[in-house]
Design a binder for these strands. Sequence first.
RNA 1: GCGCCUGUAGCUCAGUGGAUAGAGCGCCUGUCUCCGGAACAGGAGGUCGCAAGUUCGAUCCUUGCCAGGCGCACCA
Length: 704
Amino acid sequence: MASRGRAKLYCFFVITVRGNYRVSLANLQEALSERVRVAAQEAFGVAPEKLASEIPPKTEMGDLAFPVAFELAKLIKQTTGEKRPPRAIAEQLKTALETVPQVARVEVAGAGYLNIYFDRASVLAALAASEEAGTASLSSEPDARPKRMVEHTSINPNKASHIGHVRNAVLGDTFVRILRAAGEQVEIQNYIDNTGVQVADVVVGFMHLEHLTLEDIRALDRSLPADKPFDYYCWDLYTRVGLFYRNDDPNGEMNPERLKLRVETLHALEEGTGEIAELAEYVATRNVECILDTMERLGIRYDVLPRESEILHLHFWDKAFERMKAKGVIHFQDAGRNKGCWVMPFETHTGTDEHEADKIIVRSNGTVTYTGKDIAYQLWKLGLLGLDFNYRLFRSYPDQHTTWMTTVEPQADDGSQAARPHFGGGAVVYNVIDTRQSYPQEIVRRGVALLAPEVGEEASVHLAYEMVALSPAACDELGIQLTDEDRARPYIEMSGRKGLGVKADDLINRLEMNALKEVETRHPEVSAEERALTAHQIAVGALRYFLLKFTRNTVIAFDFKEALSFEGETGPYCQYAAVRANSIFRKLDEAARASAAEFIGAQDKAEVTGVLAGEGGDEVWSLAVLSGRLDEAVAQSAAQAEPALLAKYTFNLARAFNLFYHRHRIIAEENAARRAVLVTVADIARRQLTRALATLGIEVPERM
RNA sequence: GCGCCUGUAGCUCAGUGGAUAGAGCGCCUGUCUCCGGAACAGGAGGUCGCAAGUUCGAUCCUUGCCAGGCGCACCA
C-alpha cells in the first residue's frame, strides 16, 4: 500500500540527479548506462528499456558492473530467434565503453558481466573538485519544482510523547531532509487533533476528577517542576481517566454513566465556545508546546500546525461534504445497519456479518468522522479545496525559522505576517502515519482521487511504518507486570491509555546522562557547557540512528540496552569516525593541504595513479568511490521513501573510514604523492560523512 | 471469514532475478613505535519457514501450506 506511486517518484529523482550541478558518480554511471544502451542498439538492434547496473561485490572486480548481456541474450533470441552466448555479447559491448575518458579498462567476467574499472586518478580529481564547488553552491539555486508536503508527528495534544511518537517524527523529519538534499522543496506540517476524544478525556480528568477551573490549571502548570512539566502531568491524568471510565478496574467494562462525560465534553470541544472549550484550548496548546520542546531537542521543527478545530470552524469540512455529495462519492443510507449515515462504498473490502464493507463518513447523529475531516484536510494540502486557514505565529527560532498555527481569527495577523510563507497547495502529499491506519488512509486517498481525478491517487502517499513496541526485558525494567501469555510474545504493544510506554524526554535524558559520563572521563579539560553540548549531540545521534536503522515495515521491539548503546552500528560510531577525520585536519598544516591539492589536480596523473594502484591502493580507492555515492544513496532513499537506506550507507561509509584510518598514517606519511592521495581521500570522506549525517539529522561534535 | 505485513546466523536486523547471502550484538583469538581503542583484524555460527512452479539461473517472482503480527468502529 505504501508503495503506491513509487514508480512515478523514481522518474522525478532521475531528473533530480541529472539536473544537479554537483558532480557525483551518479552522473558518470548514467552516462555509461546510456553508452551501453546506444551500443546495444547499434550492434544488435535491441536494447533493454531500463538498464540495470550494479556495484561489484569486491573492489578487484571493478567499480561498476552491467549484467546487461544476460538480458540482451534473451531479447535477441526473442526478436531474431538467434542464440548468442552472453559472454560474446559482453565482449562486443566492451569496446564502446573503453573509449570513455574516465574509464581505465573494461573486463568481461563470470557468465557475462561487464565490469568497468574507473580511471582512479581522474575520478579522484573530479570528486575532490566537486567537493570544493559543491559546498559553495549548495541550495543557492532557486527551485521551480512543485512543493511536496510532509505531515508527521501529529501527536494527540493530551500527553507527553513516547518513543513510538518519536519514531514517527524522526522518520518524517529525516525524510524531509532527504527530499531537500535531493533538491526538493518541502513543507512540513504537524496536524493537531485538538477536538478529539483524547483531549476530551484529559479535560474530563481536570474537570471531573480534579475539579479544577482554567485558572486552577494555569496555577498548577506554573507550579510544576521543569523535569515533570505539563505534558507529564497529563500523561498520568490520562491514565487515571482511563481507569475512571472502567470503575478503576483496568480490565473492567466501560461505565456508560461516566462515558457521558466524555461525550458531553467532546461536543463542547467541537462547538468551540464556552468554558469547557476554553479549558481544552489551554490544555491542548500547552501540550503542543511541550511536544514541540521535546522535538526541538531532536532537531525537529515544523512550518505549520493545522488544527482540527479550524477544519471544522472555517467550514473546510462543509465544503468537502458538499463536493462529495455533488460528485456522488458518498451515499446516504436510508435503511440497513448504517441507516442515517453517509457512507463511502469500499468494494475491495468484502463485507461480512461482523464487518461492514462501506466506510461511514458522516454518522447518523450528523457528526463527521475523522476520515471525513481528513479528506477535507488532504484536499487543502493539495490546493484543491478553495479555502484557506488564518494563521498566527506560534514560535520563532533564533535562526529566523518560524512555525505557524492555524486560527479562526482573521485579524490575528500582526506585523510579522508579511514574512509568513504561503502554506498548502502541494503537488504530492506524504502522510507519515502508523501502518495500522492503512485502511482509513486508503479511504482518504481514494476519496480525494474521486473528487479530484486530475491529481489521482498518486498525489497522496501513506508513508507507513510499523509501531515501536516494548521488549519483555524493557517491560521488566519499567516495572510493568506481565502475564505469562504476554511474556511468551516477541513484544508488548505500548498503550497511551494505560500509560504504558517510554516517554521521549526520559529516554533522551538517560542518553544524555550516559553520554556525559563518557565525555567527562575522556575530556575532563573542556568546559562544562561544551561537555553538555557534546553529550547532547551524541544522545541525539544515538536515538535518531537507532530509530532509522530499521526499515519502515519492521516492528521495533524497544530494548534499553540496544537503544542506549554507543558502540557497533550506532549513531555515535558514525559520529566518531567523522570526529577522528576532523582531528586530522585540525593538525594538518596548510602546506600539506596545498601540496595535496596540487598533486591531485595536476595534469600528469602518473604518480597518483601509481599510489592508487599500489600497496593498499584498493582500500583507499574504495573509500573514495563509496564517498562519491552519497548522492545516489540520497536519491534512492528518497525514491523508495526509506531513510534506512541512507542510514546503512552512512554506517558503511563510517566503517570504511575507520578501516582506512586504522591502516594509514596520514600526517606522518613521507611520500608526498602518497600523502596527497591519503589527505584528499580523507577529506572527501569526512565531508561526505558529515553531509550524510546532517541529512539524518545528526551533528558531528567537536570532540567526543 | 476477508485484506495487508513478516518469517534470513544463538539474538536484533540488512539484502538482491545472477559472481563466495551480509552487518551489529553475544562468544573465542588477536591488534597500540597511534592523526583518539566509542576503534581495527581474524574465527566459530546459515537446508534464507516448508513444498511445488516459472526461469539458463530463485533467498528474491507465482501458488499452496505452516507460524507470527496488524487491520477490517457511527475511535483516531
